[in-house]
């Protein structure tokens, strides 16, 4: 009985109460970690920008790159694809 009630709680937690889509929900709400750039070693190549599936990485005016908080899902593709290991994934609290 205890196990089933736990399952029910989970179901209610991640299901939508109203009918519809996940449109109003920000896609980055459920991430674990966020990328951070080491500006001393970054060569501004843009590999992180081109491989981001959510188009969350954008270019700043000075040529460096940064991430949009509400879009990033924390997949870590930019971290694993960066040629110089500039990007580190920092855990969020």
């Amino acid at each position: 009985m205890e196990a089933s009630s736990g399952f029910l709680k989970k179901m209610i937690k991640c299901s939508l109460i109203e009918e519809g889509t996940a449109k109003p929900y920000k896609s980055g709400a459920h991430r674990k970690s966020l990328p951070e750039w080491d500006r001393d070693r970054c060569i501004k190549c843009g590999v992180c920008y081109i491989y981001c599936p959510d188009a969350a990485v954008y270019r700043l005016d000075d040529g460096f790159f940064d991430v949009e908080n509400q879009k990033c899902k924390g997949c870590g593709i930019c971290h694993s694809e960066c040629w110089f290991g500039v990007i580190s994934m920092v855990e969020e609290r």
């Binding site: 889509t21 996940a22 449109k23 929900y25 920000k26 896609s27 991430r31 060569i43 501004k44 190549c45 843009g46 590999v47 920008y49 081109i50 599936p53 959510d54 188009a55 969350a56 270019r59 879009k71 899902k73 924390g74 997949c75 870590g76 593709i77 040629w83």
Partner: peptide, 23 residues
């Protein structure tokens, strides 16, 4: 390595409207 900078930066893909998994 430097080629990504020459792609157009316009985005027609709306990340707010997709509920894809990470990665």
């Amino acid at each position: 390595l430097f080629v990504p900078n020459f792609l157009p930066c316009r985005e027609y893909f709306d990340p707010g409207n997709n509920n894809a998994c990470p990665g």
